[in-house]
Nucleic acid binder design. Sequence first.
DNA 1: TGATACTAGGGTAATTCGGGTA
DNA 2: AGTGTCCGAATTACCCTAGTAT
Lengths: 64, 64
Amino acid sequence: MDSGTTYSALLTPAEVARLFRVDPKTVTRWAMSGKLSPLRTLGGHRRYRREEVERLLAESSEQH
Amino acid sequence: MDSGTTYSALLTPAEVARLFRVDPKTVTRWAMSGKLSPLRTLGGHRRYRREEVERLLAESSEQH
DNA sequence: TGATACTAGGGTAATTCGGGTA
DNA sequence: AGTGTCCGAATTACCCTAGTAT
């Protein structure tokens, strides 16, 4: 029942940027350097996996 | 729409949109530009082949 | 037959892309 | 080395009303 009308496993560049408090362009650079492995819309825009982003967030708070 | 429990070889615009984290209208644009080849219901609504959509999803996460 | 959710279509904002720069 | 910003072009998101799907 309603298996995800509001939830998505993918995040937009702006959403990732808000989580890290950086500019979306910086998120793009992380992707280009291989630190993130996003998929692409058919128009070429990046979509990031929530699971991957949250894992990196957790790791970054461990080592502080 | 019961998209979580019932399997179908055809996907609605909303289902495709959720997979790519885009607006359903964007999926329509992909169809109009030839990036997707949907069927049409007798009333004119588009239905997308799951096989085609999943193939494009897989390709989008490859590195190139 | 009615009720509700979704889609088509068109228009107009808002994001994102890529490159270059500070 | 890592970010933030400016730019133009391209892509995507949100607004509406009428018609379709279930």
